[in-house]
Computed example of a mutant assay.
Amino acid sequence: MNLVPKTPTTKGPAQMFTGDVYFDVIARGEAPSRLRVNLVRFAPSARTAWHMHSLGQTVHVTDGVGLIQSRGGEVISMRPGDSVYTPPGEWHWHGASADSFMSHLAMWEDDDATWGDHVTDEEYGAGESI
């Protein structure tokens, strides 16, 4: 058993996020484990860019109101206790609603994420009528 010291909170890089996003690494498994877990905090209207994970990703909302969308799909509203799974290779984005902070646990199994374009205001705004 190892007590893992807390790592410093990190600001999400501008090439991967729109708005103010901060994350804390909760778990980074050592081989043979591939487990990755981050606590991610989004300011209102902040969001990820379009991205996909080669082994999929699960997000679990812990606080606030969030939005998530798969490319070509509907924008889904998420609240505390909701979990959303995006399968391997599925382009998606997630973030906070315009009037609420949102925190979630992001869980995935590898570092093989592909990042794409930023979510446009028009794409993001499609979820604000929810």
Rank of each mutant, 00 (worst) to 15 (best):
residue 69 Q to S: 03
residue 12 G to Q: 04
residue 124 Y to T: 00
residue 66 G to N: 03
residue 51 H to V: 03
residue 100 S to N: 11
residue 57 Q to E: 10
residue 113 A to T: 13
residue 112 D to E: 14
residue 11 K to G: 06
residue 127 G to C: 03
residue 46 A to Q: 00
residue 10 T to M: 12
residue 121 D to A: 11
residue 34 R to D: 15
residue 33 S to Q: 06
residue 92 H to T: 02
residue 33 S to L: 11
residue 113 A to H: 10
residue 57 Q to C: 00
residue 23 F to N: 05
residue 46 A to R: 02
residue 56 G to K: 08
residue 103 S to M: 08
residue 40 V to H: 00
residue 71 R to F: 09
residue 103 S to T: 14
residue 100 S to L: 02
residue 29 G to A: 05
residue 47 R to A: 04
residue 62 T to A: 02
residue 14 A to D: 15
residue 53 H to V: 05
residue 52 M to D: 12
residue 129 S to K: 13
residue 94 H to R: 07
residue 97 S to K: 09
residue 73 G to K: 03
residue 4 V to W: 04
residue 116 G to A: 13
residue 48 T to W: 01
residue 34 R to Q: 15
residue 104 H to C: 06
residue 42 F to R: 01
residue 73 G to F: 05
residue 12 G to C: 03
residue 26 I to T: 08
residue 69 Q to D: 06
residue 15 Q to M: 11
residue 24 D to E: 15
residue 17 F to N: 03
residue 49 A to L: 04
residue 113 A to M: 13
residue 128 E to H: 10
residue 16 M to A: 10
residue 130 I to T: 09
residue 26 I to A: 08
residue 126 A to W: 06
residue 82 D to F: 13
residue 48 T to P: 01
residue 97 S to T: 13
residue 121 D to I: 09
residue 81 G to E: 01
residue 37 V to I: 14
residue 117 D to K: 11
residue 84 V to E: 07
residue 93 W to F: 05
residue 45 S to D: 10
residue 75 V to R: 05
residue 5 P to T: 04
residue 32 P to Y: 03
residue 78 M to G: 06
residue 26 I to V: 15
residue 31 A to D: 14
residue 90 E to D: 13
residue 91 W to E: 12
residue 18 T to F: 02
residue 57 Q to W: 03
residue 68 I to L: 10
residue 128 E to K: 08
residue 81 G to T: 03
residue 102 M to A: 08
residue 101 F to C: 09
residue 67 L to V: 00
residue 93 W to M: 04
residue 100 S to A: 07
residue 127 G to A: 04
residue 35 L to G: 06
residue 18 T to R: 01
residue 1 M to F: 11
residue 71 R to G: 02
residue 54 S to T: 15
residue 68 I to A: 14
residue 19 G to I: 03
residue 57 Q to L: 01
residue 102 M to N: 05
residue 109 E to Y: 08
residue 97 S to H: 11
residue 108 W to R: 09
residue 13 P to V: 00
residue 80 P to L: 07
residue 13 P to R: 11
residue 19 G to R: 05
residue 62 T to V: 12
residue 38 N to M: 13
residue 69 Q to K: 09
residue 129 S to P: 04
residue 45 S to W: 06
residue 60 H to E: 11
residue 116 G to D: 02
residue 48 T to E: 02
residue 76 I to P: 00
residue 48 T to K: 00
residue 28 R to S: 13
residue 30 E to M: 12
residue 85 Y to K: 12
residue 75 V to A: 09
residue 93 W to G: 06
residue 119 V to C: 02
residue 73 G to Y: 06
residue 58 T to Y: 02
residue 60 H to K: 11
residue 6 K to A: 15
residue 108 W to Q: 10
residue 14 A to S: 14
residue 86 T to M: 12
residue 26 I to Q: 14
residue 124 Y to L: 01
residue 22 Y to F: 15
residue 44 P to F: 02
residue 55 L to Q: 15
residue 22 Y to R: 12
residue 65 V to N: 09
residue 57 Q to G: 01
residue 9 T to F: 08
residue 117 D to R: 07
residue 7 T to L: 15
residue 83 S to F: 06
residue 119 V to F: 05
